[in-house]
Design a protein around this nucleic acid. Structure first.
Lengths: 352, 352
DNA sequence: ATGAAAGCGCTAACAA
DNA sequence: TTGTTAGCGCTTTCAT
């Protein structure tokens, strides 16, 4: 009865495909070892009541000596909840998404859930592939930072009960909760700041136009210029990849020619970083305001429109868990405020 | 036969605990809908051969109209492999770990696996809790950046077949693969660099002494000083939390008194950032070399010992998958080289 | 080419 | 307090 080895092959039963998991012990093994029933082991493992201290001790001993660990896959299969949520973001290596992901993780942890995150690398197909893989693993909920602009592929999943919240950018062609930063308002305020400091020729260098935030920020730029009665020259606006080479090109371009811009509004942190590098090598002082705060921007005197990445993540996660707790109201749309942080670069006056 | 609804409650069978998953369709449902056997659906879903094009089409239609998605939990239960690996790190919001995690993710992706990562927040208990939770979910492998110094709790898991690789810091009281940066050599080179530029009184401000890299870097500092025949004053060395307040205090302290240090070696990126801030407000110019590269450090002219976080992650992940592919040699220990990047702050001479 | 039946490890329901 | 049974959704085996 108290045999510590498991029969290598349950005789008479079709054996598994291959030596799985180096033969992990199961509750059945623990039960045999402790000389109790299967359900009793289950009770002990899950801290359910109705087990005498003595039995519990015996079971615990068996667990330890066998090195048993509950198989959550089996548990999930039975219970229907995985206590895990998925986060699809663009790139974990981007300093903007790290804090966002961490904030989501903390909320998940507070709800006893694990976070699985994956990077879409700004590729819509990969976004879809990832999101669906997470659904196949039956995450209870999904937080998505869209790379693509059509999320109808998530409809069956959402109908099937996968709570879904979009962050940073709105979903395409589907109704769902969204948590955004006020890109339009932030950009408008930033550009207005430059105008207030005397600038009239201001460039906008941003991300690719299929990205919602890029378009919104451009819209904010246009609004601020229009508010001031300024006409935008097409050559001042450059949307595209945020790869350093492209941005470098764009910055140099708006600074060239007989009538260069005197100020630049950078559409996100990647653009700002490269712009700062280019401007550092430029002979003329050029004003700069960037969207997104950056580490050490204070020391470099970079004026920014700061958004709170952690707050974005936290808000989205809280919304998600509210849904998982059964709240079933209309899809909501939240826009978090941005903050203008003047540090010097945005207050440089135009050359007189 | 081609009925699109599933009986709400399988009659005569004890029904499940609650309306699971908003009633997700299963292969059985798809089979009924398509008028084929269960196994045929399985074949189609998994792209196995032995299905006529016509049958396949019917099954595909049923899948789409039902919004079926394979339940990977059930699959895992049968197959024994989850095609997922776990990564336990310190803090995803730290710009050092973002790229590391991303690199691991890419390798995992190349091997068809998903990455689940969690932050230990530098808390040994939380590290263990997380690692074991990942094991309960039967990740195929585990990459751990240790917070604690005793990893015997992983022994049963490793015995049970969970491939395990440690990164950035070695494991405690257990034999396993490790991928490190050469902290000792890097710190030694950095401090030697300061000495070569004329410094004699050099401070070391680092992380908590229970963290391996902190100790190694301190050892490198001591070695460089000794190489130069310099005696270290105890007041020059400060180990502890990397919270800005603590570091600020430490920096101010080594710069105070009648014989302040003329140079500082910062033990990691968090320390460097705060040190730079403090030094920016200091009237005397003080040399600084920091361990870890930092974004925009080039513009601020910060001399650093750079380690390649992505390479650490990549190397560890490759090692892990080699193990998962069945390679079973001795635990290996790899140390990646660091690079001294002179940018100005490390070349400031002592005041004469 | 297709399907029926067994069972992966666990929990829910129901005895005992 | 404890154990027995059925079945979660899938894959495997073996028959047809």
């Amino acid at each position: 009865m108290a045999d510590s080895t498991r029969p290598p092959t349950p005789p008479g039963s079709p054996r598994g495909p291959e030596p799985r998991y180096g033969n992990r012990p199961t509750m059945k093994d623990v039960a045999a070892r402790a000389g109790v029933g299967l359900k009793t082991v289950s009770r002990v493992v899950n801290g359910e009541p109705g087990v005498t201290p003595d039995t519990e001790r015996r079971v615990q001993e068996a667990i330890e000596s066998l090195g048993f660990r509950r198989n959550d896959s089996a548990r999930v299969l039975r219970k229907g909840r995985t206590a895990s949520i998925g986060l699809v973001l663009e790139d974990l290596a981007d300093p903007f998404y790290g804090p966002l992901s961490r904030a989501v993780e903390e909320v998940a942890r507070a709800h006893g859930a694990l976070l699985i995150n994956g990077s879409s690398a700004e590729d819509p197909e990969r976004e879809q592939e990832l999101a669906l893989a997470l659904c196949a693993r039956r995450v209870d909920g999904l937080i998505v930072i869209p790379a693509g602009d059509d999320h109808r592929y998530l409809e069956p999943e959402m109908k099937a009960g996968v709570a879904t919240v979009f962050v940073d950018r709105p979903p395409g062609r589907i109704e769902a909760d969204v948590v955004l930063s006020d890109s339009f308002g932030g950009a408008r305020a930033g550009v207005a700041h430059l105008i207030a400091h005397g600038h009239r020729r201001i460039a906008f260098i941003g991300d690719q136009p299929r990205i919602h935030t890029a378009v919104e920020r451009l819209r904010g730029y246009r609004a601020a210029m229009e508010d001031a009665g300024l006409v935008i020259d097409d050559s001042w606006v450059a949307l595209g990849s945020t790869a350093p080479e492209r941005v470098q090109e764009a910055v140099k371009s708006v600074l060239a020619g007989p009538e260069p811009v005197t100020a630049i509004f950078a559409g996100n942190n990647r653009v700002t970083v490269t712009a700062v590098r280019v401007l550092a090598g430029h002979d003329q002082r050029v004003a700069l305001v960037g969207f997104d705060d950056i580490e050490l921007a204070d020391l470099l005197g970079i004026t920014v429109i700061a958004q709170d990445a952690a707050a974005l993540g936290r808000t989205a996660a809280e919304r998600l868990f509210r849904r998982l707790d059964g709240v079933n109201d209309e899809p909501s749309q939240v826009a978090l405020e941005t903050v203008l942080v003047p540090r010097g670069s945005g207050e440089i006056p135009p050359p007189s």
